[in-house]
Amino acid sequence: MHSSYFAIVAANGQSPVGELVLSEGVSAWLFHIKFWEAINSYCQTDFSEYEEETLTTSMISYALGTLQDIKERTDSSSYDISEFRYGWSGDGKELICRVDNETISRELGPLIDMLKTAQDAHLDLYCQL
């Protein structure tokens, strides 16, 4: 489990317009709820853990709408904590992640804002998952 890094790709190779890091728990949670799988299916891409990919301008609208829906469902959830298995230890025990929904919501907000900024500026979003 590790954090994810996002940067709005500037035109002409300039420094990134904006940067953001999601915590390990929220990053793993986005894979757990199959957010990236939905992006892959809809956009015919291959966003995977421990990989680098770019959300192109043509993909950002779908990713933004999907993430906004996820945040709305998380904000209205009656559960305080999301708990899921994210892997196995060397001795075969489940590795469990627990992340509170307040943290998820707090971290998704800036990512949604970043997607809106990239969309409005017609720029790609670099993703290091």
Score class of each variant (00 low, 15 high):
residue 17 V to S: 03
residue 92 G to N: 04
residue 76 S to C: 14
residue 83 E to N: 09
residue 64 L to I: 01
residue 35 F to P: 07
residue 53 E to T: 12
residue 93 K to R: 12
residue 84 F to M: 00
residue 97 C to L: 12
residue 91 D to R: 14
residue 59 M to F: 15
residue 50 Y to S: 12
residue 115 L to G: 00
residue 39 I to T: 07
residue 64 L to E: 01
residue 12 N to I: 01
residue 98 R to V: 14
residue 74 T to P: 06
residue 80 D to E: 09
residue 99 V to W: 15
residue 111 L to G: 00
residue 113 D to T: 11
residue 44 Q to L: 03
residue 75 D to C: 11
residue 43 C to N: 10
residue 25 G to F: 03
residue 89 S to H: 10
residue 65 G to R: 11
residue 77 S to M: 05
residue 35 F to I: 01
residue 50 Y to W: 13
residue 86 Y to I: 08
residue 42 Y to N: 15
residue 53 E to F: 02
residue 53 E to P: 02
residue 41 S to W: 15
residue 70 I to W: 03
residue 83 E to H: 12
residue 44 Q to I: 09
residue 57 T to A: 07
residue 99 V to P: 07
residue 106 R to E: 14
residue 52 E to F: 14
residue 113 D to A: 12
residue 27 S to H: 01
residue 80 D to S: 12
residue 84 F to T: 02
residue 81 I to L: 12
residue 73 R to F: 12
residue 52 E to L: 04
residue 50 Y to K: 11
residue 39 I to W: 13
residue 60 I to W: 04
residue 68 Q to A: 13
residue 86 Y to W: 08
residue 105 S to W: 01
residue 115 L to C: 11
residue 93 K to E: 15
residue 90 G to W: 14
residue 19 E to R: 07
residue 68 Q to I: 07
residue 85 R to H: 00
residue 64 L to R: 06
residue 110 P to N: 01
residue 59 M to A: 07
residue 94 E to H: 06
residue 35 F to A: 06
residue 46 D to F: 06
residue 114 M to H: 05
residue 39 I to F: 06
residue 45 T to N: 09
residue 108 L to M: 05
residue 48 S to A: 15
residue 78 S to Y: 02
residue 36 W to I: 00
residue 22 L to Y: 08
residue 95 L to Y: 08
residue 59 M to T: 03
residue 115 L to H: 03
residue 12 N to V: 05
residue 63 A to M: 04
residue 78 S to D: 09
residue 15 S to P: 05
residue 24 E to Q: 01
residue 11 A to D: 11
residue 92 G to S: 11
residue 44 Q to M: 08
